[in-house]
Protein backbone atom coordinates (compact mmCIF):
# COMPACT_ATOMS: atom_id res chain seq x y z
CA UNK A 1 0.00 0.00 0.00
CA UNK A 2 2.88 2.26 0.87
CA UNK A 3 4.53 1.68 -2.45
CA UNK A 4 1.32 2.27 -4.30
CA UNK A 5 0.78 5.55 -2.49
CA UNK A 6 4.36 6.61 -3.22
CA UNK A 7 3.96 5.72 -6.86
CA UNK A 8 0.68 7.59 -7.11
CA UNK A 9 2.21 10.61 -5.45
CA UNK A 10 5.07 10.74 -7.90
CA UNK A 11 2.57 10.19 -10.69
CA UNK A 12 0.50 13.12 -9.53
CA UNK A 13 3.62 15.26 -9.24
CA UNK A 14 4.60 14.26 -12.73
CA UNK A 15 1.19 14.94 -14.22
CA UNK A 16 1.18 18.37 -12.61
CA UNK A 17 4.54 19.35 -13.99
CA UNK A 18 3.50 17.76 -17.25
CA UNK A 19 0.37 19.87 -17.54
CA UNK A 20 2.39 23.00 -17.09
CA UNK A 21 4.88 21.90 -19.72
CA UNK A 22 1.92 21.20 -21.97
CA UNK A 23 0.51 24.70 -21.53
CA UNK A 24 3.81 26.25 -22.52
CA UNK A 25 4.49 23.68 -25.20
CA UNK A 26 1.34 24.64 -27.03
CA UNK A 27 2.79 28.04 -27.75
CA UNK A 28 5.85 26.43 -29.34
CA UNK A 29 3.90 23.92 -31.31
CA UNK A 30 1.37 26.38 -32.68
CA UNK A 31 4.03 28.77 -33.88
CA UNK A 32 6.04 25.96 -35.42
CA UNK A 33 2.98 24.52 -37.10
CA UNK A 34 2.16 27.83 -38.72
CA UNK A 35 5.46 29.32 -39.74
CA UNK A 36 7.91 26.54 -39.14
CA UNK A 37 10.13 28.30 -36.67
CA UNK A 38 11.20 27.66 -33.10
CA UNK A 39 10.21 30.58 -30.94
CA UNK A 40 13.03 30.55 -28.43
CA UNK A 41 11.68 33.65 -26.75
CA UNK A 42 8.51 31.86 -25.70
CA UNK A 43 9.96 30.80 -22.35
CA UNK A 44 10.64 34.46 -21.61
CA UNK A 45 7.04 35.35 -22.41
CA UNK A 46 5.99 32.80 -19.82
CA UNK A 47 8.35 34.42 -17.34
CA UNK A 48 6.96 37.88 -18.09
CA UNK A 49 3.46 36.54 -17.54
CA UNK A 50 4.49 35.27 -14.13
CA UNK A 51 6.10 38.58 -13.18
CA UNK A 52 3.07 40.56 -14.33
CA UNK A 53 0.78 38.31 -12.34
CA UNK A 54 2.92 38.82 -9.26
CA UNK A 55 2.92 42.57 -9.74
CA UNK A 56 -0.84 42.56 -10.14
CA UNK A 57 -1.38 40.41 -7.07
CA UNK A 58 0.96 42.49 -4.94
CA UNK A 59 -0.66 45.67 -6.13
CA UNK A 60 -4.17 44.42 -5.49
CA UNK A 61 -3.41 43.13 -2.01
CA UNK A 62 -1.72 46.42 -1.20
CA UNK A 63 -4.86 48.22 -2.28
CA UNK A 64 -6.76 46.18 0.25
CA UNK A 65 -8.56 43.68 -1.92
CA UNK A 66 -9.01 40.37 -0.23
CA UNK A 67 -11.51 38.35 -2.22
CA UNK A 68 -9.39 35.61 -3.76
CA UNK A 69 -11.29 34.83 -6.98
CA UNK A 70 -11.27 38.51 -7.94
CA UNK A 71 -7.56 38.86 -7.29
CA UNK A 72 -6.83 35.79 -9.35
CA UNK A 73 -9.00 36.80 -12.25
CA UNK A 74 -7.62 40.32 -12.40
CA UNK A 75 -4.06 39.02 -12.12
CA UNK A 76 -4.75 36.49 -14.84
CA UNK A 77 -6.18 39.11 -17.14
CA UNK A 78 -3.28 41.47 -16.55
CA UNK A 79 -0.78 38.69 -17.19
CA UNK A 80 -2.54 37.59 -20.33
CA UNK A 81 -2.77 41.11 -21.71
CA UNK A 82 0.89 41.90 -21.08
CA UNK A 83 2.12 38.54 -22.35
CA UNK A 84 -0.01 38.66 -25.46
CA UNK A 85 1.16 42.17 -26.22
CA UNK A 86 4.73 41.06 -25.72
CA UNK A 87 4.18 38.08 -27.99
CA UNK A 88 2.65 40.29 -30.64
CA UNK A 89 5.49 42.80 -30.38
CA UNK A 90 8.17 40.11 -30.53
CA UNK A 91 6.62 38.67 -33.66
CA UNK A 92 6.49 42.06 -35.38
CA UNK A 93 10.00 43.08 -34.40
CA UNK A 94 12.04 39.91 -34.56
CA UNK A 95 10.26 37.38 -36.72
CA UNK A 96 8.17 39.05 -39.37
CA UNK A 97 11.09 40.84 -41.02
CA UNK A 98 12.97 37.58 -41.39
CA UNK A 99 10.16 35.32 -42.37
CA UNK A 100 10.86 33.21 -45.37
CA UNK A 101 14.59 33.24 -45.01
CA UNK A 102 16.78 30.31 -44.33
CA UNK A 103 15.69 28.52 -41.17
CA UNK A 104 18.66 29.58 -39.08
CA UNK A 105 18.03 33.28 -39.30
CA UNK A 106 14.79 33.44 -37.35
CA UNK A 107 16.39 31.02 -34.91
CA UNK A 108 19.27 33.36 -34.14
CA UNK A 109 16.83 36.24 -34.01
CA UNK A 110 14.76 34.27 -31.52
CA UNK A 111 17.75 33.46 -29.35
CA UNK A 112 18.76 37.12 -29.42
CA UNK A 113 15.23 38.10 -28.41
CA UNK A 114 15.33 35.59 -25.58
CA UNK A 115 18.56 37.06 -24.22
CA UNK A 116 17.13 40.56 -24.63
CA UNK A 117 13.96 39.79 -22.70
CA UNK A 118 15.79 38.01 -19.90
CA UNK A 119 18.02 41.00 -19.36
CA UNK A 120 15.12 43.42 -19.80
CA UNK A 121 13.33 41.92 -16.84
CA UNK A 122 16.60 41.54 -14.95
CA UNK A 123 17.36 45.23 -15.31
CA UNK A 124 13.83 46.27 -14.52
CA UNK A 125 13.16 44.01 -11.57
CA UNK A 126 16.50 42.94 -10.22
CA UNK A 127 18.04 39.52 -10.25
CA UNK A 128 16.78 38.17 -6.97
CA UNK A 129 14.31 35.38 -6.60
CA UNK A 130 11.08 37.00 -5.50
CA UNK A 131 8.54 35.07 -3.52
CA UNK A 132 5.10 34.44 -4.94
CA UNK A 133 2.32 34.21 -2.39
CA UNK A 134 0.63 30.85 -2.10
CA UNK A 135 -2.90 31.96 -2.59
CA UNK A 136 -4.48 28.56 -2.90
CA UNK A 137 -3.56 26.46 0.05
CA UNK A 138 -4.34 23.11 1.45
CA UNK A 139 -5.41 19.88 -0.05
CA UNK A 140 -6.42 16.30 0.52
CA UNK A 141 -4.40 13.71 2.31
CA UNK A 142 -4.68 10.01 1.79
CA UNK A 143 -3.09 7.31 3.79
CA UNK A 144 -3.05 6.45 7.43
CA UNK A 145 -1.08 7.55 10.43
CA UNK A 146 2.53 6.44 10.42
CA UNK A 147 3.09 5.51 6.86
CA UNK A 148 3.47 7.55 3.76
CA UNK A 149 0.75 10.11 3.29
CA UNK A 150 -0.15 10.95 -0.21
CA UNK A 151 -1.25 14.50 -0.68
CA UNK A 152 -3.17 16.09 -3.47
CA UNK A 153 -3.21 19.83 -3.05
CA UNK A 154 -5.91 22.16 -4.28
CA UNK A 155 -3.29 23.93 -6.29
CA UNK A 156 -2.49 20.76 -8.17
CA UNK A 157 -6.17 20.18 -8.87
CA UNK A 158 -6.47 23.76 -10.05
CA UNK A 159 -3.60 23.23 -12.44
CA UNK A 160 -5.11 20.07 -13.90
CA UNK A 161 -8.50 21.59 -14.37
CA UNK A 162 -7.20 24.82 -15.84
CA UNK A 163 -5.00 22.96 -18.30
CA UNK A 164 -7.89 20.79 -19.31
CA UNK A 165 -10.14 23.77 -19.84
CA UNK A 166 -7.51 25.57 -21.87
CA UNK A 167 -6.84 22.55 -24.03
CA UNK A 168 -10.49 21.96 -24.71
CA UNK A 169 -11.14 25.61 -25.41
CA UNK A 170 -8.22 25.74 -27.78
CA UNK A 171 -9.22 22.57 -29.62
CA UNK A 172 -12.74 23.83 -30.04
CA UNK A 173 -11.44 27.15 -31.24
CA UNK A 174 -9.17 25.56 -33.81
CA UNK A 175 -11.75 23.15 -35.08
CA UNK A 176 -14.93 25.20 -34.95
CA UNK A 177 -14.25 28.89 -35.31
CA UNK A 178 -13.47 30.83 -38.46
CA UNK A 179 -10.12 32.03 -37.20
CA UNK A 180 -9.31 28.51 -36.14
CA UNK A 181 -10.06 27.28 -39.60
CA UNK A 182 -7.88 29.98 -41.03
CA UNK A 183 -5.10 28.87 -38.66
CA UNK A 184 -5.35 25.35 -39.95
CA UNK A 185 -5.32 26.57 -43.51
CA UNK A 186 -2.26 28.71 -42.98
CA UNK A 187 -0.40 25.88 -41.32
CA UNK A 188 -1.12 23.62 -44.23
CA UNK A 189 -0.11 25.92 -47.00
CA UNK A 190 0.79 29.53 -46.46
CA UNK A 191 0.87 30.50 -50.09
CA UNK A 192 -2.49 29.01 -50.89
CA UNK A 193 -4.09 30.58 -47.87
CA UNK A 194 -2.84 33.95 -49.07
CA UNK A 195 -4.30 33.36 -52.48
CA UNK A 196 -7.62 32.47 -50.93
CA UNK A 197 -7.80 35.86 -49.28
CA UNK A 198 -6.87 34.96 -45.74
CA UNK A 199 -4.90 37.71 -44.08
CA UNK A 200 -1.97 35.49 -43.15
CA UNK A 201 -0.16 38.20 -41.24
CA UNK A 202 -3.08 38.58 -38.89
CA UNK A 203 -3.44 34.87 -38.43
CA UNK A 204 0.21 34.51 -37.61
CA UNK A 205 0.00 37.34 -35.11
CA UNK A 206 -3.06 35.68 -33.62
CA UNK A 207 -1.11 32.45 -33.17
CA UNK A 208 1.60 34.21 -31.25
CA UNK A 209 -0.96 36.02 -29.14
CA UNK A 210 -2.85 32.85 -28.24
CA UNK A 211 0.36 31.01 -27.41
CA UNK A 212 1.48 33.92 -25.24
CA UNK A 213 -1.85 34.05 -23.42
CA UNK A 214 -1.61 30.39 -22.54
CA UNK A 215 1.94 30.92 -21.36
CA UNK A 216 0.66 33.69 -19.09
CA UNK A 217 -1.86 31.29 -17.57
CA UNK A 218 0.95 28.86 -16.95
CA UNK A 219 3.00 31.66 -15.41
CA UNK A 220 0.35 32.54 -12.87
CA UNK A 221 -0.37 28.92 -11.98
CA UNK A 222 3.24 27.93 -11.63
CA UNK A 223 4.18 31.04 -9.72
CA UNK A 224 1.60 30.11 -7.13
CA UNK A 225 2.46 26.44 -7.14
CA UNK A 226 6.23 26.68 -6.87
CA UNK A 227 6.66 29.91 -5.01
CA UNK A 228 9.19 32.21 -6.65
CA UNK A 229 10.06 34.01 -9.84
CA UNK A 230 13.38 35.19 -11.25
CA UNK A 231 14.40 36.50 -14.65
CA UNK A 232 16.04 33.30 -15.80
CA UNK A 233 13.53 30.61 -14.97
CA UNK A 234 11.64 31.05 -18.22
CA UNK A 235 14.51 29.74 -20.27
CA UNK A 236 14.74 26.36 -18.56
CA UNK A 237 10.99 25.91 -18.56
CA UNK A 238 10.89 26.89 -22.21
CA UNK A 239 13.53 24.35 -23.09
CA UNK A 240 11.63 21.58 -21.32
CA UNK A 241 8.39 22.63 -22.94
CA UNK A 242 10.03 22.67 -26.32
CA UNK A 243 11.37 19.18 -25.72
CA UNK A 244 7.84 18.13 -24.79
CA UNK A 245 6.45 19.66 -27.97
CA UNK A 246 8.97 17.82 -30.11
CA UNK A 247 8.35 14.61 -28.21
CA UNK A 248 4.68 14.77 -28.97
CA UNK A 249 5.18 15.76 -32.54
CA UNK A 250 5.74 19.39 -33.21
CA UNK A 251 2.87 21.08 -34.98
CA UNK A 252 0.31 18.93 -33.26
CA UNK A 253 -1.60 20.38 -30.32
CA UNK A 254 -2.69 17.08 -28.79
CA UNK A 255 0.93 16.08 -29.30
CA UNK A 256 2.05 18.98 -27.13
CA UNK A 257 -0.26 17.85 -24.34
CA UNK A 258 0.83 14.26 -24.61
CA UNK A 259 4.49 15.19 -24.84
CA UNK A 260 4.18 17.45 -21.82
CA UNK A 261 2.56 14.78 -19.69
CA UNK A 262 5.02 12.10 -20.69
CA UNK A 263 7.97 14.35 -20.01
CA UNK A 264 6.59 15.42 -16.65
CA UNK A 265 5.93 11.87 -15.53
CA UNK A 266 9.32 10.70 -16.77
CA UNK A 267 11.06 13.41 -14.80
CA UNK A 268 9.07 12.70 -11.70
CA UNK A 269 9.63 8.97 -11.84
CA UNK A 270 13.34 9.39 -12.43
CA UNK A 271 13.54 11.76 -9.48
CA UNK A 272 11.51 9.50 -7.33
CA UNK A 273 13.06 6.15 -8.09
CA UNK A 274 16.55 6.89 -9.29
CA UNK A 275 18.03 10.23 -8.52
CA UNK A 276 17.08 13.82 -9.08
CA UNK A 277 20.52 14.47 -10.50
CA UNK A 278 19.95 12.68 -13.76
CA UNK A 279 16.39 13.61 -14.48
CA UNK A 280 17.34 15.96 -17.29
CA UNK A 281 19.60 13.34 -18.80
CA UNK A 282 16.74 10.87 -18.79
CA UNK A 283 14.38 13.41 -20.35
CA UNK A 284 16.69 14.11 -23.24
CA UNK A 285 17.59 10.47 -23.69
CA UNK A 286 13.90 9.65 -23.80
CA UNK A 287 13.50 12.25 -26.51
CA UNK A 288 16.35 10.81 -28.54
CA UNK A 289 14.97 7.31 -28.14
CA UNK A 290 11.49 8.23 -29.27
CA UNK A 291 12.80 10.20 -32.21
CA UNK A 292 14.89 7.21 -33.24
CA UNK A 293 11.76 5.19 -33.81
CA UNK A 294 9.37 7.95 -34.71
CA UNK A 295 11.37 10.72 -36.29
CA UNK A 296 8.47 13.14 -36.31
CA UNK A 297 7.45 12.64 -32.71
CA UNK A 298 4.66 10.59 -31.24
CA UNK A 299 1.69 12.29 -32.82
CA UNK A 300 3.53 14.20 -35.47
CA UNK A 301 2.46 13.99 -39.04
CA UNK A 302 5.16 12.46 -41.16
CA UNK A 303 6.51 15.22 -43.31
CA UNK A 304 5.79 14.65 -46.91
CA UNK A 305 8.63 15.91 -49.00
CA UNK A 306 7.59 17.31 -52.28
CA UNK A 307 10.21 17.11 -54.95
Amino acid sequence: MQDLLYFSQQLINGLTIGSTYALIAIGYTMVYGIIGMINFAHGEIYMIGAYTALIAITGLTALGLAWLPLILIVALLCAMIVSSSMGWAVERVAYRPVRGRHRLIPLISAIGMSIFLQNYVHLAQGSRNIGFPALIDGGFNFGSGDGFQMSLSYMQITIFITTLICMTALSLFISRSRTGRACRAVSQDLGMANLLGIDTNRIISATFVIGAALAAVAGLLLGMYYGSVDPLFGFIAGLKAFTAAVLGGIGSIPGAMLGGLILGVAESMTSGYLSGEYKDVISFSLLILILLFKPTGLLGKPEVEKI
Partner: peptide, 11 residues
Protein backbone atom coordinates in the same frame (compact mmCIF):
# COMPACT_ATOMS: atom_id res chain seq x y z
CA UNK B 1 20.79 43.42 -23.24
CA UNK B 2 22.68 45.12 -26.04
CA UNK B 3 24.08 41.78 -27.16
CA UNK B 4 20.60 40.27 -27.49
CA UNK B 5 19.28 43.33 -29.28
CA UNK B 6 22.31 43.32 -31.58
CA UNK B 7 21.67 39.71 -32.53
CA UNK B 8 18.10 40.53 -33.50
CA UNK B 9 19.13 43.66 -35.36
CA UNK B 10 21.83 41.89 -37.33
CA UNK B 11 19.40 39.24 -38.45
Amino acid sequence: LIFGAAMVLMM
